[in-house]
Design a protein around this nucleic acid. Sequence first.
RNA 1: GCCCGGAUGGUGAAAUCGGCAGACACAGCGGACUUAAAAUCCGCAGACCAUAAACGGUCGUGGGGGUUCAAGUCCCCCUCCGGGCACCA
Length: 843
Amino acid sequence: MQTNETEKQTRYNPAEIEPKWQQRWDADPALYAAEGHDAGKPKYYCIEMLPYPSGQLHMGHVRNYAIGDALARHMWMRGYNVLHPMGWDAFGLPAENAALKNHTPPREWTLANIAAMRKQMQRLGLSYDWATEVTTCLPDYYRWNQWFFLKMFAAGLAYRKKSKVNWCPDCQTVLANEQVIDGRCWRHEDTIVEQRDLTQWFLRITKYSDELLDGLDKLVGWPEKVRTMQRNWIGRSEGTLVDFGVDSEVKAADCAKITVFTTRVDTIFGATSVQLAPEHAVAKAFAAEDAALAAKIEELLTQQTLAREAGDVGGIEKHGVDTGRFAVNPFNGERVPIWVANYILADYGTGAIMSVPAHDERDFEFAQKYGLAVKQVIAPRVDAGDVTLPYTAEEDAVLVDSGGWTGESSVEAQQKMAEFAKANGFGTATVTYRLKDWGVSRQRYWGTPIPMVYCECSGEEPIPLPESALPVVLPPQVDITQQGGSPLGRVPEFVNTTCPKCGGPARRETDTMDTFVDSSWYFYRYTDSKNADAPFASEKANYWFPIDQYIGGVEHAILHLIYSRFWTKVMRDLGLIKNDEPAARLFTQGMVIKDGAKMSKSKGNVVSPDDMIARYGADATRMYALFAVPPDKDLEWQEDGVAGISRFLNRIYRLATKYGNMSMAKDVAREGKGSAVEQKLLRKLHQTIAKITMDFSGRWHFNTSIAATMELVNEVVASESAIDAGEVSTAAVAEVFRNLVLLMAPFAPFFAAELWEQIGGEGVVFRVPWPVANAELLREDEVEIPVQMNGKLVNVVKVPAGSKEDVVKAAALADAKVIARAEGKTVVKVIVVPGKLVNLVVK
RNA sequence: GCCCGGAUGGUGAAAUCGGCAGACACAGCGGACUUAAAAUCCGCAGACCAUAAACGGUCGUGGGGGUUCAAGUCCCCCUCCGGGCACCA
């Protein structure tokens, strides 16, 4: 069979074009390299969140990177010095699971996955500077985790303590609070997290609680949603600590008083009981000499565990036990019963509260259930009659029945009563936080070894290794099982070492660091990724930071994004950097959905990027991800949509090939205004330039940017016969095609590179200056003005652009259709919005 | 329960500052080309009413009210969906 040669040439064939260009780009590592500080250009640091090397890119990645890549390329064309790096969040449990399953060492498995995914990224045509690549599981990276750990230890920011920690039986390791979701593991949504008493390493993130909170107000380039989530997570709460005396026979230590935390000290005259968490020291002391009470408290704890197993974490049925002992309210000397209740959290505040049923929903519910007294001490006004209880308002509320404080406003009383308590030695104003220190110890193999040793010379106190001993390298051969504590503990060559203090035999710490340590500072390493003497050179980080645009999934709103803010503040205080926050702007893209659910292996609705690329090409796949919806919304993957983009590219390809010779006329100047078709075509071109330029600097609604290029192409198609008839100048055709290719370059890089070459463009298309809309050509001679009657469209009239109000009005009133409609009616009023519309109010 | 988002044709969506609702696509339908199909090209397309056809008319952005010459857009109330937090004292 004969192949039609002409047809073959005009046919868009991504399978041929894309690998060809990729080869050329791979051969030129400088292509996407950022320039130095002295580039004489403004810098632009654009990052997409680094992936975990699972082995396969999924559509969520493709979408994320398509957004970042379009932005990076656009900024290059706008003349910025762009840093656009990529790396691998390469430590973590899946590598150990794979090792168990396939008997492949975690390192081998991980590095093979990285190689495969890097290849996929290159096939997608993403503009990363691979020279700055960061792989967190390699010693040249994780040694700096250890270095930071030592710095933090020296600064008192890393410490060890025994405490209740979250334990995932599936991961066989401890989890940070941030990794526990509704009482379940963030990686195993069916697994209930247990509480265990363990000695663990913590990073003192709470030292920065206030700064992390206050900094959110200044992060105007972050989504409000993320800022709100972080505010809630930090959970700052101003209140008062008040010591209640204990009136009891029990004389155990620490039992003389119970310190409660309250945000409503103004309600204290209404306290009718004190409630303790089951784990509270005083509750334990009471239980120690009262077997019946001990059994009841034990039952409360069992109920808590059962509720957790049932998946009920918040709002479980309230239960309590009367201890039979009494506490004394220091404000009025009143004796109130002490209860132990299951809804009091041991690890928030002091684990003890004063119960004020009249002014707190939960206390009210509890008092109703157990018949405790309800005493109103707050009212809207002093003489307000009955109000519905519980009455929880504090604005515009006053104290009643509160001794000498009666008549004070609630808000003022809170401050004054705290001061009074302090002056009298039974309390003080305080601030509590929901945020807890970050537990970073993990009983796993595939993570950064913690650079500490234990030696008899120091008792059980940890001894930091000297910096010269770094990196502490992971031993390659490890028997990984899911049982029996830290795998490193079973490697004698690793465990047994020499004490840096006394020179005698010592044991290494066998826990590794949470992998969120790795991702807390990786973007600093990009700026100086080969540095062997420091995590990075300060002057390099200071040049690039803060990140101008950070792009990733909203699922990291708490975890990664709060840890990395913390790490930045620590590094600043160590004098390494000058910025307070890692990223000036954050963008969280939506999920990729298929058949109404997030793509996942278990649901069997995964669309493979490789399949899409094989069928339609990388450009069409990426462009569809940007075209279907605005990037912040969830995207329902429709393969037909990708096919549509492919057709669109094909159409341009045909036109560009057809008008290739005309398009090469880059040096021919346009003369005069040209024909009406030419004017219209050029106007559309410049409108499109203006539109897309605005999308990049504003809302990032690339779906409308791409729609605009489609409109432009439709205009070219509509003008085809006129072009063929010679009614459009060669210079105008060249202007349209050259700019069209430039406008598409951020979205379809292979396609743009190919066409740029075909139409005789010079240099690398991604370094050609971004087109600028010509205001002269945008101007229309005549505009269409809609004419409404009582707000409803009647007709559209044409008037010269820039017409004055009376001209537009006259044109509207002279319109035949308007006259016909207005017959028999009176025009009461005429509203003219010049350049916009006319509305006739008729009766 | 609290705090954020949302709801627009058969579908994804557009309307950026209160000013022509449905741009641009997908799917669909009709036509051209073809022996045929694919591909490509041209056209139709919110719903309802009316009509031989054309010209038309009415309604319409989750529901109800309001402000305005004018509301998808602003205000109040409600419903549903998604996300986050949730005995945080």
